[in-house]
Amino acid sequence: TIEDAIKKLLKLAQKGQPYTFGDFTVTSEEEAKKLAKWLKKQL
C-alpha cells in the first residue's frame, strides 16, 4: 500500500539512503516527509 511505501521511505531516509519512488529521488528525511505529505494528498 501507499502507507507501507511511506513507512519504508521514511526508514530509508533516516539511514541516509537515497530512495527512488516513481519520478522522485529522496535523499533526506526532510524530502521524504514532503513526499509523504504529497502522497497522502493523492489518496
Rank of each mutant, 00 (worst) to 15 (best):
E30S: 11
T25Y: 12
I6W: 07
T1S: 08
K11F: 12
A13I: 12
K41W: 14
F21T: 02
S28V: 09
I2M: 05
Q42C: 14
L10G: 01
D4L: 10
E29I: 13
L43P: 01
W38N: 00
K37W: 11
G22H: 07
K34E: 07
K8W: 14
L9T: 00
K33T: 05
W38Q: 01
A13V: 12
K11Y: 13
I2G: 01
A36G: 02
S28A: 04
G22N: 13
T20H: 05
T27K: 06
K37D: 08
T27V: 11
A13Q: 03
E31M: 09
G16L: 13
K8T: 09
T20G: 03
K8A: 12
P18Y: 10
G22A: 09
Q42S: 07
Q14N: 09
T27Y: 10
T25A: 06
F21A: 03
L35V: 02
K11S: 10
W38M: 03
E31K: 04
K37A: 12
K15Q: 10
G16E: 04
P18F: 11
L43K: 03
T1P: 08
K15C: 14
E3D: 06
L9W: 08
G16I: 11
L12W: 15
Q42Y: 10
E30T: 08
K33P: 01
K41A: 10
K15S: 11
P18V: 08
L12I: 06
K33H: 10
S28T: 12
L35Q: 00
L10I: 09
K33S: 05
A5E: 08
A32E: 01
Q14R: 07
S28E: 03
I2Q: 02
T1V: 07
Q42D: 01
G22W: 15
G22V: 12
L43E: 03
E30A: 10
L10Y: 04
E31V: 15
K33I: 14
A36D: 01
F24R: 00
K40V: 12
L39A: 01
G22K: 04
V26H: 02
E29T: 10
T20E: 06
V26Q: 02
E31S: 10
K15E: 10
F24P: 09
G16F: 14
F24L: 13
A32Y: 05
D4I: 06
K37C: 14
L9R: 00
S28K: 02
E3G: 07
S28W: 11
L39P: 00
K15D: 11
E3T: 07
A36S: 04
G22T: 07
I2H: 02
G16V: 07
D23V: 14
K7T: 06
E3S: 06
K8I: 11
E30K: 09
D23Y: 15
S28M: 09
Q17W: 15
L10K: 02
K8D: 02
P18T: 05
L35F: 06
Q17E: 12
A36N: 01
Q14W: 15
E3K: 11
F24Q: 03
K40D: 04
I6C: 14
E29N: 06
